[in-house]
Amino acid sequence: MKKSDIYEIAIKVLGLYLLFTCIDLLTAALATSALLIHAKQNPEMFESFGQTPFLILSIANLVFVVLFALFLTLKTKTIVKFVCKPSDYEERSMLSVDRELIYEIALVLMGLILVVWTLPDFAIKLKEHITLVQSDVPTNEYDTNFVITAAIKIALGITAVIYSKSLAVGLGKVNGDSSRITGVE
């Protein structure tokens, strides 16, 4: 395996991680939009403190991180060309492994982390939400958004674990290289 191959794998894994963390940014954007709606319905609630700039910033942040994560994931070879020195394309290590295997392991780990970190809060908020709905008490819009985004996180985490092999093969083919990485040729 060349040093440039290791850079390529690390950059792609970072891009995948950022894609998974975009869900939290989506939660922030939804929470900010809920605040904006409440501010419009109840102007005295925030007095003259406008919520629109916060909504614009949260959406811009979400879009920027999604685009950056997609760039890292889909244009990895281009980034590696800028990051690596010419010697990095020649320097070899004695590691012998498939790219897809590394991507598969990373997807399984990220999926499990996403589920484990999200599940406890999701269970608590879902129980509270169900209790409020059954009691005919109005629910908090932020809590509803939290339950929805947490369910999406759990679904994505489970999908990443279940379909890690298929996704890893797809990631390996994104750059047109699904070869075995070997330190010895």
Rank of each mutant, 00 (worst) to 15 (best):
K3M: 13
S4N: 07
S4G: 10
I6P: 01
Y7C: 06
E8D: 06
E8L: 10
I9E: 02
A10F: 15
K12Q: 04
F20D: 03
C22S: 14
I23W: 14
L25C: 01
L26Q: 12
T27Y: 15
A31Q: 13
T32Q: 14
T32E: 14
L35G: 08
I37H: 04
A39K: 02
E44K: 04
M45K: 06
F46G: 02
I56P: 00
L57W: 02
S58K: 09
I59F: 09
A60K: 03
A69R: 01
A69I: 10
L74D: 04
K75R: 13
T78C: 08
C84Q: 01
C84V: 10
P86L: 02
S87L: 05
D88T: 06
E91Y: 13
L95D: 10
V97H: 08
D98W: 13
R99A: 14
R99H: 08
V108W: 07
V108C: 03
M110F: 12
L112E: 09
L112F: 05
V115I: 14
V115S: 02
V116Q: 12
L119A: 07
K125N: 11
L126W: 04
T131D: 08
L132M: 10
V133S: 08
T139D: 07
D143L: 14
N145K: 08
F146A: 08
K153A: 15
L167E: 00
G170H: 10
L171F: 09
V174S: 05
S178V: 07
S179V: 14
S179W: 07
T182N: 14
G183Y: 07
E185D: 06
